[in-house]
Amino acid sequence: MLHVKNLKVDFEVDGRRIRILHGVDLDLEEGETLGLVGESGCGKSVTCSAILRILADNATVTGEVMYDGTDLLKLPASKMEEIRGKDITMIFQDPVVYMNPVKTIGNQITEVIHLHEKCSQAEADKKAIDLLTQVGIPHPETRLKYYPHQLSGGLCQRVMIAMALACKPKLLMADEPTTALDVTVQAQILDLLRSLNKKLGMATILVTHDLGVIAENVKRVMVMYAGVVVEEGPVDIIFKKPAHPYTEGLLNSLPKMDGQEGDLIPIEGSVPAPDKRPAGCCFGPRCKYMTDECLKGQPKLTTINGTHRCACFHPVHGTYGGEA
């Protein structure tokens, strides 16, 4: 359904071109849920924004984003507008920022409906009430007249989801949808997203930095680091037998809930700035398994086993299948 090939994004800052995304491949089937995980600045949000073409003007996107047989990157802006919000939608981390503070939430939801469908205001209102019911907001009729500031963070996120679902999208991209929420509310929202995914059969890309959220909510995951996909595969395999040292490091650095004593095992150093990337493998300087071979170049994403792929010359589990 969605095939992204060699997606590269450059930003022009102060007259310099800085590459943020270094050729990302991504395939998504209908109804599938895919997790994108990585730390801040690894390019996970940029990937989603590039697919939807909502990046700022100083960004240059190259590559291919095939959606239902058309390349979204080559579409004229007007055609793209028809797809955006109708076929592909996105929800963000901080719902309050993405809503209009001086318009009621009813107005904001019906605005989306009017944009993509021809219907009367009464019909649109009825649809909005249905949507709010669907996302589990109590008393939807009265809530339509509320402004965003009158709702809690959890309710605002539900309204955002309602807006995103207004035109029955085929793909929902959720960019850190629960990061700004409390854990008990996070559990509610993730539960809602899971049930909607099942009920409506839409594909979902879940972007997060929280490995726990990934473990519980998606079947397949892509781990990103410094603009590169370093590992990809089924969640249960990657959590049990991570192949890339970065994935292994991330899993080790988290304290476990089931009693583990002693110090945490951190990943030393910090993520390189996009304009100061190390030579060779981008994770090299922080990797405890680094060898001279790792300085030769960025390893390609190659198959470890079945659908499990990894970009490392010396995977923790399995062997590197590509050329050095």
Binding site: S152, T184, V185, D210, G212, A215, L254, M257
Partner: peptide, 21 residues
């Protein structure tokens, strides 16, 4: 405590879901 996402895939079974805010 039950709302903390566990690191083992498919472990949502024991979650106590709180309703509302």
């Amino acid at each position: 405590i039950s709302a903390v996402p566990s690191l083992t895939p498919d472990a949502q079974a024991k979650r106590i879901m709180l309703h509302g805010d």
